[in-house]
Each structure stands twice: as structure tokens, then as C-alpha cells.
Nucleic acid binder design. Structure first.
Lengths: 231, 231
DNA sequence: GAGACTTTGTGATTGCTCTCACAAGGCTAG
DNA sequence: CTAGCCTTGTGAGAGCAATCACAAAGTCTC
């Protein structure tokens, strides 16, 4: 199992296990944790936890569980969190501002190293001690500050252009909050977070259950057997 | 294909097609669009677009493409966006505030109908014209305002408790921004957005490519053949 | 040190998603 | 009305991901 490539789905869960392990480590002084406990905390099932962890190597002890500290270290290392990856935020609307002062980033070891915009009215002002700089200075800043992650928080119309500037500056990892698709070369990773898409997905499932309830109700009133609508 | 249940993966892409279609409709006056064009705009391949749309029904015309307006309507209807789903935000830290005034929600037809917190210092103050109310009023507000979506933007320690209050008030759809797992009954949908998890995933891939580059470099210097490290 | 108990690690299986490739259907031109 | 062209809709197959279930390996008790 060791040395096999780690599946994407597993990578996406490692940060969740990491959070659960931190909770165990800081909370009660448990030295080990079982896949069952981890699974409960992470909201997945135990077999998945074991399979996921087995991609990293055999770090558990049968009959006992996983050593909390050791596993914490291994996951941290695997995720590349032993070094820091300074990030830049581009766009200081509501969202950009909130991200710039979001404590969750610093708590997890991510440091916002620079903030950019193109609006002269905000350039020079500060957010949390960091000056807002003009987007034209991006490349220079990326080199000087060793920025490796770009966070796009612009309106959708600017997203592609900003992405290209990030790529041109040498950034290989982009987190895109703008509701727009951005195209980048294959050696650059993009992840997107689209807040209203999440609501639309919720809407779909809500609408569906409501439609079923309505249909059931109609059937009940007509005193007719439902015709496969619950499926 | 019609009447078969729509796969989750497809549901998650419908909002992206919707966005692309709106762009086509508002931009140039094209009346139809091909799966190829839609695929480019959505950043997926054409076969996937066609298969996804085929779950909704046969709304295309061979040799021509899809009627933009008609398809827009069908996707909107399927996603349940013909009715509105008032949402409540719980927690007014940086993120909660940003979400409360995030334009993307209103642009997509989602209305924030109420905002809650437990901090007496902020209760009674307003965000974008809406008063911040005490969490104890949640149930009452859900009934009165017909709130159907709860957006959790609290610290992680409060997330589970807030989720339970939402469920108790009758909310069936929850969007969770707190970095914590929340457990709810099976008839409630939860989607989570965890900003630092996204960065950690980016970190994994960045670290990996960097590790490979370093190993290649080491091999080059030693004038030895790489041993399968590029895979 | 033997037997009962616990928990991991993983082959095997099942299910879901993506991609391919092409027949079917519809339009256009002459 | 026919031939050629275009684009959809979908069966078939490949590839991932989740789950099951159990042997292997460790601890604990007496």
C-alpha cells in the first residue's frame, strides 16, 4: 500500500482527520485513538479511515489503535504543512476582507502575506496591518515574499485575468472564490469555492423532498396508492 | 433516461451550467448553444454535459444544440429556484458579516431573511438593514419568516449546538462554514465549506510537485537515472 | 504461555462516475 | 427528395471510490 499514489478522495479527507487528531491531542490526554473514534469525529466510517491512513503507511498498532502524536506528525508532513506557504489575496470586497482577517487560516498555519486590488481608493489602506497593494506589483511581491498560493476574491469578470497574472508570477496553487471558471496550465492546481452553488445544491434536495411530500399529500387526499413517487 | 434519479455529481454541476447559460443569454443574442460550447464555459467535457442534461429530459435538438431560454428554465425549475428559499445566518464574526452582505447570494435569488448571534454587544445592531437577533428567537423567526436554509458561521465549538437548534426549528438544509463536523438526522441536508481545508489540499499537491522537482534535481546532480520518481 | 479479546491492514466486491464512440435524428442545399 | 453535415442521446467499458469482511498481529488476564 505504501508508495502507491494517494487517491484524491483520501487527500481531501486528510485535513479532516488532522483536525480530529488535534482535538484528541489537546482535549483529554489520550495517547492513542482507534479508527472507530476517528471515524466518529470525522463523520465517516471506520473502514474508510483505515484505508485512507494505510496509504500513508502502517502507522497503527493492531489491538491498540494509532499513536496520536505520531499520526499527527505523519499527516502534517504528508500534507506539506511542515513548511509554510505564504498566500496572497486578490480583491478586497466583502469576501476578500473577511478572508484577510479570517482566523481559521492562521490557526492552520497559513499566513496571508500580501493583499492586492486595482481600486485606487483602497490601495495604501491596511487590513490587519497589511497594506493593500496594486495588482501590478503582484509578480514582484510573489518573488520577494515567496508567495505560493493565490486566493482570488474578485468579481467573476476579473477572475480569469487575475489567474493568468498569478500563473505568470509563478504561483502554482490557486483558490478561487469568484463564481467563474478559470483556465490554467496543467501544472497549476485550482480549487474553487462557490458559495451560491452550495445553496443551489441545497435547494435541489429541499425542493425534491418537498415535491415528494406534496405528491404524497395529494395521493392521500385522493385515497389512491402512491405511484412510485418516493423513489 | 428521464425519471431516473439524478446523480449527485450531476446535481453539483447543474448550477455551473446555469451560470454558463445566463452568460450566453445575457451576452450575445445566441438562441441556441451546443454541448461543446457549454462544456468550454463550464470547464468540463462535452459528453459529460450531454449526459448530465439527458437526466433532465431530451431538451436538445440534434444538429442544432440546446435552446438557451428553454434549458435555462428547465435547470432553474429542476434546482427548485423558481421559488425562493429565505436563509438565516447564525454567527456574525468576519465571515458571517461578509456572507450577510455577499452579493452573490442575492444575484442567484437567495435572500438572507434573518441574522442571529448570542453576543449581547452586537444584538440589535444592523447589517445591511437587517437587525441581528438573539439565537433564542431562532425557532420563532424560522416559522414567521419561512426560513428554510440555515447558514452556520460560528466558531467550531458552537456549530453542533446551532445545527441542533436549526433542526429543532424545522430547517432541513444547512450550509456549514464552521470547521467542525455536524451531525443531523437523515432527513436534513448539510453541505460544508471549509476554507482552510481547501488550502491544505492545495498544500498537498504543491508539496508533492516540489518534492518531485527536488528529487529530480538531486538525481541530475548525481548524474544517476531517476528511479520512477516522476510518477 | 495459552486463550480471549481488540483493532489494524487489505483483498474482494459493489457501486458510482467519467469517457468513448457511434447510431439516430434533424437541418441545409441543390 | 436526396445527400451531406452537424449535434444529440446513450449503451458499453474503463477507472475510481466506498464498503465488506476477515486474517493477521498485537494486548491483557490468569
Amino acid at each position: 500500500m505504501r508508495n502507491r499514489p494517494i487517491p484524491e478522495a483520501t487527500v481531501a479527507r486528510l485535513p479532516i482527520y488532522l483536525r480530529a487528531l488535534l482535538e484528541v491531542a489537546e482535549g483529554r490526554g489520550e495517547l492513542t485513538v482507534s479508527s472507530e473514534e476517528l471515524a466518529n469525529m470525522a463523520g465517516v466510517n471506520a473502514a474508510k479511515v483505515r484505508k485512507d491512513l494505510s496509504y500513508l503507511g502502517s502507522y497503527g498498532t493492531r489491538g491498540v489503535g494509532y499513536d496520536v502524536e505520531y499520526l499527527l506528525y505523519q499527516i502534517t508532513r504528508e500534507l506539506g504543512l511542515t513548511q509554510d506557504w505564504p498566500a496572497a489575496i486578490i480583491g478586497v470586497g466583502n469576501l476578500g476582507r473577511a478572508l484577510a482577517s479570517y482566523k481559521g487560516f492562521s490557526e492552520r498555519g497559513f499566513r496571508i502575506a500580501a493583499i492586492f486590488d486595482v481600486d485606487e481608493a483602497v490601495i495604501g489602506t491596511e487590513i490587519g496591518g497589511l497594506p493593500i497593494r496594486h495588482l501590478d506589483e503582484l509578480k514582484e511581491a510573489v518573488v520577494d515574499e515567496g508567495i505560493s498560493i493565490g486566493i482570488i476574491a474578485t468579481p467573476p469578470s476579473a477572475a480569469q485575468e487575475v489567474a493568468e497574472k498569478l500563473v505568470d508570477a509563478g504561483v502554482k496553487s490557486i483558490l478561487n472564490f469568484a463564481p467563474a471558471v478559470v483556465n490554467v496550465p496543467p501544472d497549476v492546481s485550482v480549487r474553487k469555492v462557490d458559495l451560491s452553488i452550495e445553496l443551489q445544491i441545497l435547494s435541489f434536495y429541499q425542493q425534491r423532498t418537498q415535491a415528494i411530500a406534496t405528491a404524497r399529500e395529494a395521493n392521500r387526499r385522493l385515497a389512491v396508492q402512491p405511484k412510485g413517487l418516493e423513489r
